[in-house]
Structure formats: structure tokens, C-alpha cells
Computed example of a mutant assay.
Amino acid sequence: MSLITRRRLLATAAGLAATAGLSSLWISRMSYYQGPVTDHFDGTRFFDPDGAPPKNFWEVMRWRFSHKPAQWPEWAPSPFADTPPPRVDGAGVRLVYVGHASWLIQTAGLNVLIDPVWSERVSPVSFAGPKRHNDPGIAFDKLPDIDVVLVSHGHYDHLDLATLSRLAAAHKPRVITPLGNDLTMTAHDDAIRAEAYDWSDRVALNDRVAVTLVPTRHWTARGLFDRNRALWASFVLETPAGRIYVVCDSGYGDGRHFRRVRDAHAPLKLAILPIGAYEPRWFMQDQHMNPADAVKALADCGAERALANHHGTFQLTDEAIDAPEQALYAALDAEGVPRERFPVLKPGQVFEL
């Protein structure tokens, strides 16, 4: 066994021990969702009847010791930084890409954050785990008054408890999330105004904006022992300018999740689709789309156009920092789809409907 392999084994063992300890501590103070059995909840855990279960321990170990991650630059700053207006009234929609899967959407006098992450790392600990390679596209103190936060699921790069606590203290927003994630939030900070909903639930946000939680091909966990004890979802946001389909994290599968959204919610003005964290495919394909999948998802859901997310901020998998953007444009060209129909924004960049 080489010295590098031994070091990897020791580092992984230490990391697993630390995570197990944190998970045990977390479970000792956590309660989990309880409710009736449904077509996607067995009484203990949630599941996707049209999806795939998360990889098992041995598959995780196989990836951990065989993967060859590309070298990302230590810091990859965006040339953009936004200072949003206090409100956007009328029929328009203003979107700002904050980074990774985080967005600010302003419409109809409402300010909505999607999967907000302002922390330095996406990890159960502050001293290790995936670290930022660029600043959020909006400085936290430049945020307008936030009315609503949508949190798609419990993975650390989407449900950031430190950021949710900061938002609760500064803005006191409603936090809309799938079943069970509210318990994670309030166990951490009971000031977080979490509201939990099931797939297909429609929630009015004001008199002109509503959101529906829709199934997505994914899974969730916070530690080693709580897989799928909470639900995950994508969002269809109804706005005066049309419906926006927000997919923060998803595999592609056979595309049926996207076609079902088209059938139930068309016409879609815009889709926000993930393009990153996809290599190696044998390990990631059930939970993360690659750019070619994202182009197929755009066709399946029927949206007029799309914006890319879930790339370029935290190195979660093996591909290079710029690989998702390059592969997306190659996939668009191969399918004859104009590149301007599916642009890749940098953190701080603005898009308006």
C-alpha cells in the first residue's frame, strides 16, 4: 500500500469517525417527521417510487478511494456583485444568481431566496469540508428585506443552518421546505419560521405569487444514520410573468419527473436547472444531472428558456470548475439549441423576465 493510499485511508477513517460522532450527537437531539404512510413515505423514511436509492456505504468507499478530482483554483472570483433594489413591483421578475444553488427572485413586491448559503463551507463542521471558491453574488448586508425562503432538501450545500439563523435574526422570513426539514431547522434555532409541506402542496406567498412543491429525483441526509428521514423537492413558482420551475438538485433518470411537471404546470416561462457535480457518472448519475441531461430536461419540461445552477462555487465531485459550462454549450450545440436559451450566469449576475 502506497503512502498516499495509507494517508487517504487514515484521513477517511478520521473523517468518518468525526461524522459518526456528530451524527450520533445530532440524532440524540433530533426528532423526525411522523405521518401516515403514502406512496413516497413508508412510515419511517421517504422514497421516490420513480427514482433510485442513494449509494450504499461500500459504493461511497469505492468512489472515495478511486476518484481523481480535478484541481480547482483556490479562488475563482466572479466579476459581478449585485446590490438588489428593495422591491420589484409590477409584472416583471428579477433573478440574481448568488452562487451554487442560491438565488434571489424578486417579483410582485415579494423577495424570495432559494437554498440560501452564505457560509464558508458546506459541511457539518466549520473547519473541514467543501469550501467556497468565490463570494456570494450578493453580500449578506446588501440583501433587501427577505419575505420567503425556499429550501429544497437537507444536504449541507442546500440547507445551511447558519445562514437560515442569520436570515431569521435579520429578516424573519417564512421558510418553505419539504416535510421533515423544518424539524432540522427548528432543532437548531426555534426562531426559524419553518413551514413543511408535501409533494404537490401549493402555498400562497402573497396575492400574486404561489409555490408548488413537486417531486424530484434525489435524496437527503444530514449524517450517516438519517438517510431520507426528510423529504426533498423542486419548486414551481407562479409569478405575474409566468411560472418558474426551480430545480436545485436532481438526477435525470428517464426524464419522467420533468415531463410530469410540464403536464401539470405548463406553460413554463423559465427553468432553473443544475448542471454540475456529476463526475464520476457511475456514482453521481442517479442524483445529479450532467449538462447533457440538463439539455434533455429543458426539452422534457418544455420551458421557454433555462438558467444553469449547482456549479462553480463548491467542489463536490471530480469535474473541473469550468467543465459544466463548457459541456453545457457543447450539448446545446449538439442538439441545435441556441446557447442564449440556456445561459450560465456568474455569481452576482442579473437576469430579468
Rank of each mutant, 00 (worst) to 15 (best):
W219C: 14
F314H: 05
P69W: 10
V214A: 05
R132I: 08
P85N: 04
R62M: 04
V88Y: 06
T163C: 00
A292V: 02
F140V: 05
D115N: 15
W75C: 04
W232T: 05
A52Y: 10
E335F: 04
V117C: 14
Y32H: 14
D50R: 15
V125E: 00
A323F: 02
R7A: 14
L16F: 07
M185W: 00
V261K: 04
D207Y: 01
G180L: 01
V214G: 01
T5K: 13
F283E: 07
E319Y: 12
A334H: 01
A292R: 10
R260D: 15
M284T: 12
A303K: 09
C301I: 00
V117E: 04
R262A: 07
A187G: 03
S23D: 10
G90D: 03
V175D: 01
Y32M: 04
V60F: 11
D135E: 13
S24I: 15
L353A: 14
L237A: 01
T163A: 00
H218Q: 13
R260A: 13
V88C: 06
G180P: 09
D82H: 13
W75L: 15
A294V: 09
W26E: 15
Q315P: 13
A308C: 03
P124V: 06
K68P: 00
D300P: 04
I192K: 06
N134Y: 06
A241V: 08
T186M: 14
